[in-house]
Design a protein around this nucleic acid. Structure first.
Lengths: 408, 408
DNA sequence: GGGGTAAATCTAACCCATAGATAAATGGTT
DNA sequence: AACCATTTATCTATGGGTTAGATTTACCCC
């Protein structure tokens, strides 16, 4: 497959996305300010804004006067343009979040999931029920829904009889979902979703290369290079959780040994604690989120648990070494950390990870690297997959040509 | 650093590069054929060709008649436009290759290097002497030299007191080189050079993502994404040889433990043999290229050495696992292998590596991956760095705006 | 009414690519 | 010699994008 060639339409597409991002960051802003923050000329901004006003994506909020000179018109994203739903299909739950067209969350609904979600019908049904419940809570008629983004995880292997390339392999189930939902849908995986969220809401717009690392049960990375998500040949890029930390090391859920996830996934952290202190009560906590929360509690002053402290130290080392691989291969400007492990343990883990990645990276490759907790709030998978659905909608109405996942 | 914004000039730049690549691949060709192979319109091709003719980059070779219709003019790259020198500064030699402007090799000279090349003056002197010798052999006056590309390896740490980010850290020595050579120079590292060679001469133009892996003393990867070299924030991308294969594994020359290079670099392969058969005569061969050549000889029928056979098997496994990491993180369409280890051992190693990477990659991520020996002939570092110098020259004369390394 | 200021729009110029028309250069036929 | 058919190369008008500078708009103040 040859590289794609850019046209002048793609230039306009990127200009529109730049303006949208600036509007999203600012809330309300003027054409002149948009020109300043995007670096586009005022004439280009005026043209782009006119397009977005015509499309109903942007609205003129109010007119404000300065001390002197012509009054200025403040613009904002038109939240009433419609609604977008982001669905995070995880291993223990299916969560549907309704966003307005300015990507603010308006409602959400969650359905418990268990082993059941390995059965196709059950998953399709679960997704539909979660979407219905969220739309009902938001009081949103289906006619107002611009799109539904659905994030399916890598562990859902049996759907396509394949690995984490779900978006490409799951075609046999997409029609069932479309039929069941009767709404425009787009399917992608959590890594592409969190990267998209980071690109629209986090560090991704300010840096030419950002990697956002998700730490939870599963572990993975969303890679942003020059304002675009790295997808790879089969949409598989970013499965860093299943790269090697230790040849012939611990067994991993994916069937291999020594994967990064087997050390820094929640289960891997629990195993580390069990190796340090066999019989430690927290090593037997059955649910992974409970385990991580219990770790955080055990680290509280005045008497932090020494085995838990050692577990954090070792985990930071493993994570630092694994992040050093990303530095060695991709050399990003910044790495952001997200996921419930980070929310719970970030205060203890992140400073140690920063030190570890500098030590583990070859030479001084990580000297200028920024490592920080992602500033994307809420469920970043749902936010990101909803954003992908918005990108698809913008593509469908002719406003955007780039960045949209192909053939999904 | 914000992502770079594309303009219409960048579109023309890519069109020119497309035409140049097609000319390079075809040798001689017509405007109509260029339009067919590049997919550009005949009008755009005519415009681009006119630019390249004006710049002296392309020349009209001859006129050929078909059976009927207007005769056609055959075009080719103008090898007499000038000369370009590519310098490969390796650990045991400094090799300077003179290329004509059609990137065909016309002369070369090699100077032995040893521990001496860690001293700045010695290296500068060595480079200058190699360049002088190669130009003398080619009978090329200095006035005809369009540029000199110099590839400095990661091991040359003391130049900048830094790691493999030589191109950025070595500013204090660039002036000395400029002064000494009195020619326009551009400095880069071997990974960017081999990637550029693969992009211009190999698989890089036919695929949206190609990783070219160099196996020798040092080990690394050049990454091409959508027709461009992945450089990273500090030009460090591709140092996959210093990512982890085994946490706390073998000591590596870079000071860490467990690096990929410690297992699949020539020294690492020798260590593997030593572990399989302590006291094996080949385990004591002092020069690494001699060692690899001796391995190849020991594999010849009718009696391949069993310890050597086992060494190849293990090496294939290590290499497959390490390539699987590239698959997991970047998900390329194709991986090409290059370097003197591959030239010598490819027949035995490559089929086993293909099988290994499929086994080691998570799920079926590597199902569609192509793994092949690079089709770039000759010293691909010298070829690639010369090509980078040509890109710089094309940029200086205003024909190209993209792909050129910044500020070097 | 005139002057000053700041926001928004207009205009002309620059850049790129292409579909279709036109010109150029043959060979073959009448 | 004139005409037709074919193929190559160039020309032309149109579509798309961005921006520097000019002009218009909408105020406030004197």
């Amino acid at each position: 497959m040859a590289p794609t060639r850019r046209t002048s339409r793609d230039i306009r597409s990127e200009s529109r996305l730049d303006v949208l991002h600036a509007l999203l960051a600012a809330g309300e802003t003027t054409r002149n300010e948009l020109a300043r923050t995007t670096g586009l000329s005022t004439a280009t901004v005026a043209t782009v804004v006119s397009d977005l006003l015509s499309g109903g994506i942007v609205t003129e909020a109010r007119v404000a006067s300065g001390r002197v000179g012509r009054p200025t018109t403040l613009l904002r994203l038109n939240q009433d343009r419609g609604r977008i739903v982001g669905v995070d299909v995880a291993e223990t739950y299916i969560r549907a979040v309704v966003f307005d067209a300015a990507l603010d969350e308006t409602a959400s609904a969650e359905i418990a999931a268990d082993e059941r979600h390995d059965e196709t019908e059950e998953v399709v049904d679960g997704i539909a029920r979660a979407v219905d419940a969220a739309l009902a809570q938001a009081g949103t008629p289906r006619g107002e829904v611009l799109g539904v983004g659905i994030s399916l995880p890598g562990s859902m292997q049996r759907w396509g009889g394949a690995a984490p390339v779900m978006p490409n392999a799951a075609w046999r189930h997409v029609d069932r979902l479309r039929e069941r939902l009767d709404l425009p849908i787009v399917i992608d995986n959590p890594l592409k979703a969190i990267a998209t969220a980071e690109l629209w809401f986090g560090e991704g717009r300010r840096h030419s290369s950002t990697i956002t690392v998700n730490l939870g049960t599963g572990v993975g990375a969303g890679i942003i290079l020059n304002g675009a998500i790295l997808r790879g040949a089969t949409n598989f890029a970013g499965e860093w959780g299943h790269s090697l930390l230790a040849l012939d090391g611990r067994a991993c859920r994916c069937g291999r040994n020594g994967c990064v996830e087997a050390y820094v996934g929640a289960l891997g952290i629990q195993q580390t604690l069990g190796a340090i202190a066999p019989g430690h009560p927290l090593a037997a906590v059955p649910l992974q989120r409970d385990f991580i929360d219990a770790l955080a509690a055990a680290l509280e002053p005045p008497e932090p648990d020494p085995a838990v402290t050692e577990t954090i130290r070792l985990t930071a080392r493993y994570l630092g070494a694994a992040l050093a691989d990303l530095v060695a291969i991709v050399n990003p400007e910044t790495i952001t950390l997200t996921g419930w492990t980070v929310w719970a343990l970030g205060d203890h883990l992140v400073p140690a990870v920063r030190r570890s990645v500098v030590e583990e990276a070859p030479g001084d490759a990580a000297a200028d690297l920024e490592v920080q907790v992602s500033t994307v709030r809420g469920n970043s998978v749902a936010t990101g997959i909803a954003t992908i659905a918005l990108e698809r909608f913008l593509s469908d109405v002719g406003l955007v040509t780039t960045r949209v996942p192909t053939a999904l």
